[in-house]
Design a protein around this nucleic acid. Structure first.
Lengths: 165, 165
DNA sequence: CTTGGAATGTCAACAAGACTGACTTAAACT
DNA sequence: AGTTTAAGTCAGTCTTGTTGACATTCCAAG
């Protein structure tokens, strides 16, 4: 009922379609985090540890400040996570040679092993979803995700994307 | 370097491609929740309240148990949220006529107003992303998201999708 | 050279929101 | 009458976010 396709010029952009998109993102994201969450729950870690490990692996030697900017949390919040990872010898924090205030972060072998375990699970899900959907759908998927990002997020995303080639 | 396209038969499924997909989901989801989060932060509410409001609006008269199943949280967790929403007169919990043990949940006018405010923000983002990406990309986006969901999540998603037609 | 400010990171305390487990109440079913 | 189901409650824990205060280091202006 109501003005379903009232103000929209493009037919596929009804409120109902948009709402379904929102719900799809919600449910997909829950599934997306479920695999690593299950693994992390067996240890004393959570999603925050996963994120830190992921991005340290992605950009080894990154500083705490750098990581902060990517994750978008406060330094105090990240610090707690980082501390436990360093204590458990998954991450090494080396004092900067040029600037001694900085800490450069690296995964240890143990840290790399966990990273692989977590990302394997997540990649397996992405791989099977990508396979099932086909290359054209994947391209569209990526296009919409990038369009959804805030300029600031997109900047972070693209900087990683380029560094990873 | 390393075995970039070593074990994959399909070229577009390199580990690097999958990793970029994972990061895209991460950054897009952050942006996706940012708008409602900003609005909610001004009140004493959080994301949990938003989710409850969203699904009550989506399926008015739903029972607590029903909502529990959709959200995938414990009743203790949902109860805390629901209690504050009822106290603040955003949600009404009516005793069931057929089964008096059940509480049927409805948004009040005040609740509907907040729901609209929150979903307007989120829909605006989706709309502009969809517009920018084009219909074909949107179709692909939806296809991949559905393929990413656990069977259980997909079941929940589809049941809502159908009820919303 | 020194001193004051800026940048980087750490510690402590608190709040939201998730969880488990144990329990109560009321209603419905058998 | 006894069991199951729906909802709600109380207590305690964990993760992860927040602010505020503080230490260390660097750098630049006087």
């Amino acid at each position: 009922m109501s003005e379903s396709s009232g103000g929209e010029t493009l037919l596929f952009l009804t409120d109902e379609q948009l709402r379904q998109g929102i719900e799809a993102v919600f449910f997909a994201y829950q599934s997306f985090t479920a695999d690593p969450d299950r693994i992390l729950a067996t240890m004393a870690y959570g999603r925050a540890h996963h994120r830190a490990i992921h991005f340290i692996n992605r950009a080894p030697g990154t500083t705490v400040n750098n990581l902060l900017a990517i994750l978008g949390v406060t330094k105090q919040s990240l610090n707690r996570v980082l501390r436990s990872l360093v204590e458990d010898e998954l991450v090494e924090a080396r004092v900067g040679k040029v600037d001694k205030r900085e800490r450069h972060l690296y995964l240890t072998e143990k840290g790399e092993a966990l990273e692989r375990k977590l990302s394997d699970a997540q990649r397996a899900r992405m791989r099977s979803a990508y396979r099932a959907a086909g290359p054209q759908a994947v391209a569209g998927f990526r296009t919409v995700l990038e369009a959804m990002m805030d300029p600031e997020m997109r900047r972070r995303y693209l900087s990683l994307k380029e560094s990873g080639i």
